[in-house]
C-alpha cells in the first residue's frame, strides 16, 4: 500500500534527512573543488597586469649601507679594545711604580731603624722626634697614593662616558642614513615600477640589469643596459621606464655625502615576477 511508506516516514525521517543534507553539502564542496582545480591556465593568461615589479638588487644601497654600518661597528669595537689595552698597560705601569716606591720606603725605614738603633742610647729625645717625623711622612705618602688613585678613577669614568656618547651618536647617524637610503630606494623603485609598461613578449624569469647615473638634483644623466634580457623589446621597455620615471626630485633632499655613496650610480634589475606565463 502506498500510504504505508508515507506513514513510516511521516513524523520522523530524520536519519534519512541527515544523510541527504550531508550528501548535498559534500556534493557542493566537491563541485567547488573541482571547478577550482580545473580552472585552466589559458583563462588566466588573459589577465595581464600593466604594471610590473621592478626590483633593485645589485649594488643595492641598502645592503651597501648595512655593510658600512657593520664595518663602522667593528671599527668602534676595535677602538674600544685598544683603549682597554692602553688602560691596562697604564695600570700595570702605575702598579710597578707603586711597588718601587714601597721598596724605597722599606729601605728608608730599614735605614732609619738602623740609625735609630745606633743612636738610641744617646738620642732618646731626637729618636722620638724622628719617629714622629717618619710617621708623618708615611701618612703623607699614603694620602698621596689615595689621591692618585681617585684621580685615575675619575679619568677612567670620563673616558668611559665619552666613548658611550660617541657610540650612541654614531649609531644614530647610521640608522638615520639607513632610513634615508631606504626611502630613496623605495621611491625610485616605485616610480620606475609605475612607469614601466611591460611588452607582450615579456616572460617570467627574464632579467635585465640597467645602470643609471644620477645628479644630486635628481636628474638622470644616462641609463645603459649592462645585462640584457635577450629580448630587445624588454630591454627597451625597461630603459623607457627609467627615462619616464626621471627626474627623481625628492633625492634633492638627501645630504650630498649620502647621495654620492648610494645614488650617484645605481643598478636596477628588471624582473617581471607577477606574470602568469
Amino acid at each position: 500500500m502506498k500510504d504505508t511508506f508515507n506513514n513510516v516516514v511521516i513524523y520522523n525521517g530524520y536519519p534519512l534527512s541527515l544523510v541527504v543534507a550531508v550528501t548535498f553539502h559534500s556534493a557542493i564542496l566537491a563541485l567547488l573543488l573541482f571547478l577550482q582545480s580545473s580552472r585552466s591556465a589559458d583563462v588566466m593568461e588573459l589577465v595581464q597586469p600593466t604594471v610590473v615589479k621592478a626590483l633593485l638588487v645589485q649594488e643595492n644601497p641598502q645592503v651597501a649601507n648595512e655593510r658600512v654600518r657593520l664595518k663602522r661597528q667593528q671599527q668602534q669595537q676595535q677602538r674600544a679594545r685598544e683603549q682597554e689595552q692602553a688602560q691596562q698597560a697604564a695600570e700595570a705601569e702605575r702598579q710597578r711604580q707603586e711597588q718601587a716606591r714601597a721598596e724605597e720606603q722599606r729601605k728608608a725605614r730599614e735605614l732609619a731603624s738602623l740609625r735609630q738603633r745606633q743612636e738610641k742610647e744617646r738620642l732618646d729625645a731626637e729618636q722620638l722626634q724622628r719617629e714622629q717625623e717618619t710617621l708623618a711622612e708615611e701618612q703623607r705618602r699614603q694620602r698621596e697614593l689615595v689621591e692618585a688613585q681617585r684621580q685615575q678613577e675619575v679619568r677612567d669614568r670620563e673616558t668611559q662616558r665619552e666613548r658611550e656618547a660617541a657610540e650612541a651618536a654614531a649609531a644614530e647617524i647610521a640608522s638615520s642614513e639607513f632610513e634615508m637610503v631606504q626611502s630613496g630606494t623605495a621611491l625610485i623603485q616605485q616610480l620606475v615600477q609605475e612607469s614601466w609598461s611591460r611588452p607582450p613578449s615579456a616572460r617570467n624569469g627574464m632579467r635585465a640589469v640597467l645602470q643609471m647615473r644620477l645628479l644630486p638634483t635628481g636628474e638622470l644623466v644616462d641609463v645603459s643596459v649592462t645585462q640584457s634580457s635577450g629580448d630587445p623589446a624588454f630591454d627597451r621597455s625597461a630603459e623607457n621606464a627609467v627615462y619616464g620615471a626621471a627626474p627623481f626630485r625628492e633625492l634633492q633632499a638627501l645630504p650630498i655625502n649620502i647621495f654620492n655613496e648610494n645614488f650617484r650610480s645605481l643598478s636596477l634589475i628588471f624582473e617581471p615576477e607577477d606574470l602568469l606565463n
Partner: peptide
Amino acid sequence: LGLSIVSWVMIFQRWMVLSAALKG
C-alpha cells in the same frame, strides 16, 4: 556550516512530512 547542515536536515525532513500530509 553547522547551521547550513542542520537547516538542510530540517528542509528535507519537513519536505517528507508535508508531502506525506498533502497526499494523506
